[in-house]
Simulated scan of single mutants.
Amino acid sequence: MAGHSKWKNIQHRKGKQDALRGKLFTKISREIFSAARSGGGNPDTNFRLRMAIDKAREANMPSDNIQRTIDKALGNIPGVTYEEMVYEGYGPGGVAVMLELLTDNRNRTAAEIRHIFSKRGGNLGETGCVGWMFERKGVLTVNKEDSSLSEDDLMMLALDAGAQDFSAEDDQYEITTAPEDFAAVQEALVGQGVKFEDATVTFVPQNTVELRGEDARKMLELYEALEEHDDVQAVYSNFEISDEELEKIG
């Protein structure tokens, strides 16, 4: 799991965020739309929708926007229909890259994503080319400074709730679960007053590839370009970049 934590730290150090609120709202709205359309509009029975709504509230999205998106998904308001897709490919240095996308135009999205890869030393691959390198996991992180519990107490709570693993990484604790146990573990810990810095079901690489020099620089550029694309909901990769190399890149 260290690869997951390391990449989260890289993101923070690079200061990479969905910089504009409008762009962030667009991504979250599409996720709410897709979740409601596939699993219904009740967040109490649709865990994916509940996660999307929680993300929207964390981003201070107005409640009216959330409800309007759900209504569109249920057909109560005419609107655009989005299609879910997963793309796989390779970045500089042969690292694996997976994308989760929501699009209203498959052909346009494919052309644009292919261009982003090729312009930055990567290439879009066939379905299944890198998927086997990742595992689907629930990952919950707790900032050590924000935790009122000791490391041992938090670990015992997490494991008793059904977590698969617990680790201490730099300034945070990381709890991992099977995807189907994620909601139960999260709810159990929230019930004990635990506050999460991040909580999501994600793809975690089984092994990582360390990048240096030009490959490292190009891979960061590729990652950021993919994240900035409106249709991309999430980017996963298996690369590592050392602190020293990050400082060289600037």
Rank of each mutant, 00 (worst) to 15 (best):
G193R: 06
V185W: 02
V194M: 04
A199I: 02
E210A: 12
Y223A: 12
V209G: 04
T202F: 03
E187W: 00
M219R: 05
G213A: 06
L211I: 03
Q233W: 00
K218F: 06
G193A: 05
A199F: 00
Q186N: 13
E214Q: 13
E214S: 14
Y223M: 10
E197C: 11
V235K: 02
K195C: 10
V209P: 01
Q233R: 12
V232I: 08
R212H: 13
L226Y: 03
R217E: 11
K195P: 04
N207W: 08
Q206P: 04
D231R: 00
E221K: 15
G213P: 06
F196D: 07
H229C: 04
V209K: 09
E224N: 15
G213D: 05
T208D: 12
G193I: 03
V235N: 01
E210N: 10
V209H: 04
V190M: 12
Q206G: 09
Q206N: 10
E227D: 11
A188M: 07
A216G: 06
E228A: 15
E197T: 12
L211Y: 03
T200N: 12
Q206D: 08
F203Q: 15
R217S: 13
E214N: 12
V185Q: 04
A216R: 00
H229Q: 07
E214C: 08
E224D: 15
V185S: 04
Q186E: 13
V232C: 00
V185L: 04
E197N: 14
E214K: 14
V185I: 07
F203C: 11
Q186S: 15
P205T: 06
T200P: 11
V204F: 02
V209N: 07
E197G: 15
Q192P: 00
V204E: 00
R212C: 09
Q192K: 14
Q192E: 10
L189M: 10
A216I: 02
K195G: 10
L226S: 02
L222S: 05
G193Q: 05
D231H: 05
R217P: 02
D230P: 09
A225H: 08
V204N: 02
V185T: 03
E228I: 09
D230T: 11
Q186Y: 09
T202M: 01
D230E: 13
Q233G: 11
V201T: 11
K218S: 13
E227P: 08
D198A: 15
K195D: 09
E221G: 14
D215P: 01
Q186L: 11
V190K: 15
D215K: 09
F196P: 05
T208F: 02
A225Y: 06
A234M: 08
E210H: 10
L222N: 05
G193C: 04
V204M: 01
E224R: 14
A199R: 00
A188E: 07
Q192G: 08
V235G: 01
D215T: 07
A234T: 13
E210M: 12
L211Q: 01
E187R: 14
D230S: 14
E227N: 15
L226R: 02
L226M: 05
L220V: 07
A234E: 11
L189E: 01
G193H: 03
L220E: 01
A188K: 08
E210L: 09
E210G: 06
